[in-house]
Design a protein around this nucleic acid. Structure first.
Lengths: 112, 112
DNA sequence: GTAGTGTTGCCTTTTCACTGCTACAATCGT
DNA sequence: ACGATTGTAGCAGTGAAAAGGCAACACTAC
C-alpha cells in the first residue's frame, strides 16, 4: 500500500519539481516530503489532510482520489454518510457485484 | 447535535450505572464521562474512538451506530469505501431519493 | 447531615505532524 | 573530473491539539 507516495512522486515529476522546490510550496521540509513519497513516515503512513490538500492543489491532483489512496475518507463522502447512515451501512455490507449493479442503477436514475 | 451524549446516558441509565460506577469500567474519569454525556468536551464534541468502543461493549450498544452519532465513520464502512472508492464517490453524489431507491434495490439483489 | 449523584473550570499528559539538522550516495551537466 | 543538485535516512526536538484527570461545587434524597 505505498500507492499514495508513488502517486505524489508521479505528480511531482510531471510538474518537474524537485523535493527541495516543492517542499516550501506546500509548507513542509524536503526531507519530510521524501518520507511521504516513500511511505517512511515515523508514524502512520500518510500525512495530514491539510498537507494532502496543499499537495493536491499545488500538483493539480484530484484531492479526493489522493485522500482515498492515503486511506482517508474525503469530507464530501463522510458528510453524506452521516446524513444517510442507514443507507451506507447497508451498502457497506454488500458484496462487490451487488455494489456494482447498484452503482449502475444510480447512474441510470441520476440521468433521468 | 447532542444526540450522542444523550444516547450514552440512556444506555447507562438503562444498565443502572452511575457515572462513578461506569467510568472505571471504560477506563476514564467520571467527570470526563459527564462531559461526554452533556457534549461539554473542552474540544470537539465526541470522545476518542477507543472510548466509544469500550462504551459500546460495556453498555451493550451498537458500536457503529454510536460512532455515526459521534460524527465518525466506522471502520467497517471505511474499509468498504477504500475497497470500492469509485462506487462510493458516485453514491455520495446522489440525492436522497436516488439513494433510497438504490438501497431498496440493494436489499432485493441481496435477497435473491 | 451525610452519602451518592451529576456539573464545571482549570490542569496535565499524550499524540501527532511535522522541523531541523546531519550525513550520505547517486546522478548530472560541463 | 568536478562541483552542483537530487534523493535517502536517522534522530532529537517542538508546538499545537486531542484526550482525559482533579478538585471543588451543587443538588437531591434519604
Amino acid at each position: 500500500m505505498k500507492v499514495f507516495g508513488n502517486k505524489i512522486r508521479e505528480l511531482r515529476k510531471f510538474k518537474g519539481y524537485s523535493l527541495r522546490t516543492l517542499a516550501p510550496m506546500v509548507g513542509v521540509g524536503f526531507s519530510y516530503l521524501s518520507k511521504v513519497e516513500n511511505s517512511k513516515l515515523d508514524f502512520g503512513d500518510s500525512p495530514s489532510e491539510a498537507l494532502i490538500h496543499k499537495l493536491a492543489e499545488t500538483l493539480d491532483g484530484d484531492e479526493d482520489e489522493l485522500l482515498l489512496m492515503a486511506g482517508r475518507i474525503p469530507k464530501s463522502i463522510a458528510r453524506r454518510i452521516l446524513e444517510q447512515p442507514d443507507v451506507f451501512r447497508l451498502l457497506a455490507k454488500c458484496d462487490d457485484t451487488t455494489l456494482r449493479s447498484v452503482a449502475a442503477q444510480a447512474i441510470r436514475t441520476g440521468k433521468k
